[in-house]
Design a protein around this nucleic acid. Structure first.
Lengths: 197, 197
DNA sequence: CCTCGACTATGACAGCGGTCATAGTAGCTC
DNA sequence: GAGCTACTATGACCGCTGTCATAGTCGAGG
């Protein structure tokens, strides 16, 4: 799972994100992260002197950047990009994972929000920033497709909200139906926002 | 916070739901629940021989029933019920709470899903059931408003997905904007599904 | 009064988790 | 080779948590 080429520090951040995604923040131990990343335990305190909080915050930030990067890649890959097409791709990433590898993981940013929003201010801030970079990427993609700037922000919020919620439902039900439903119902609304049509 | 009239058992379930809502499942201790419920610690093992798992499962179930009950009450209170009006009320419950008492709490069912979906099968099932009763109540309300049965199910999934996601965003941002945005953007789509119009 | 069941009250325990302290190694520069 | 820095390696500690065990209270029924 952890790609070997990266340095141990980045591997630990990556592993932390993966484990948080699956078990939540509190159930993910530092030792567990080190083992999963095939990194020495002593490196934790060396690279993350801020302790677990710092590691979690960086994992959340990493996830935000990763999600934004995916949006950009989707946009580049789609032949004729439309809002509904983008959303369908975002949803498909999850349905693909759930159908092939099971319903083990959710969104790490959501997990951090649920577990730390009230207790760890810096993590709450990190989650907010992660959501912001993600929605920002989506909004930029929408404007590039011809959606007026003002609505692009609102629609990106709607897209990511319904995606996050559908992920929750899908994991609870162990069924991708919520995800496919959301994509189908929201598609026409999204495409209707394109300016010249 | 805990209403005094109820018995200690119900108070503990209620307190568990409240604490889980705020701190997540794993960060909520049994002793803490007892204190919050003003219940004796010894009663935990008496009323919940299944341990923490049983308590959490019941708290999740309680939350599902509570959410469904709210839907029914909204429906009865609205003079001329429309899908968008129902959704606006569902959202308003959260914006009201956040604006008056702060962003301390999220949805307990979401918290249980994030923390236990992979590790505690019975809790995952309980969360699925809670979501099912909630979506069921919303779908029933929609059909009563004239939405065709098939779409009512899909729209209820969409409504709850986007509500749950918006709750996450709002908590992370400490700003109700995501909630109000979702309500505004989704309103017309929901009302357009009413059969005779 | 005695008993019995429901409930309450504590204390102990074993496990685990994050963090600190300390020491060791590797590689580079002077 | 001395010395310095970056990184690795462990062991110990302390606090917390869920759970178990045991004992106590209290009210109703016989």
């Amino acid at each position: 799972m952890a790609k070997a080429e990266r340095g141990p520090r980045e591997r630990m951040v990556f592993s932390a994100a993966q484990l948080i995604r699956r078990d939540g923040v509190h159930s993910t131990g530092m030792r567990e992260v080190a083992v999963d990343a095939a990194a020495p335990r002593g490196s934790l305190q060396h690279y993350f002197p801020g302790g677990k909080t710092q590691l979690v915050d960086e994992a959340v930030g990493w996830a935000g950047g990763y999600a934004a990067g995916r949006v950009a890649r989707f946009l580049a890959a789609l032949p004729e990009p439309t809002p509904s097409g983008l959303f369908a791709e975002m949803v498909r990433q999850w349905t693909d994972e759930y159908e092939t590898t099971g319903f083990a993981g959710g969104c790490p940013v959501a997990a951090a929000t649920v577990d730390c929003a009230e207790s760890v201010p810096s993590t709450r801030t990190a989650a907010s920033a992660a959501f912001a970079t993600w929605t920002g990427a989506v909004a930029a993609a929408l404007t590039e497709m011809g959606v007026p700037a003002k609505r692009a922000g609102a629609l990106s919020t709607l897209m990511i909200s319904s995606l996050e919620g559908a992920i929750l439902l899908a994991r609870a039900d162990q069924d991708v139906r919520a995800l496919t439903t959301v994509a189908r119902e929201l598609g026409p609304l999204l495409d209707a926002a394109v300016r010249t049509r």
